[in-house]
Amino acid sequence: MVGYDMAIGEYRDVPAEMDDIEREVAAAQYPEGGLVVGLGVGIVLPLVTVQALLLVGPVLGGVVGFALGRRIRDYEIRRRRADRPSEE
C-alpha cells in the first residue's frame, strides 16, 4: 500500500521503518512528554529552592525526562509484542 510516512529526524525513529505496534506507541510521544515534564520539574524546583540552579535544572530535568520517556516507550513496545500472540 502507499502510505504517508516520511522520515522525520535523526533523534527519532523513522516512521517508515515501523510496524503498527511501534507506530501506536510512537504516537503517544513518551520521550517528548517526558522531556516537557522534566523541564517543568527542572524549572519549578530551582525557583522554590536555589535560583542559580536554573542554569542547569531545566536541561538536567529535560534530559532525564526524555530518557525516562524512551524507557517507557521501549517497555510499551515490548509489552504489546508479548501480548500479541496471546490475542491471536
Binding site: Y4, D5, A27
Partner: peptide
Amino acid sequence: RIQLYRTMTS
C-alpha cells in the same frame, strides 16, 4: 492513533 501518527508525519 496510528492513522493520526501517519498524518502528523506526512
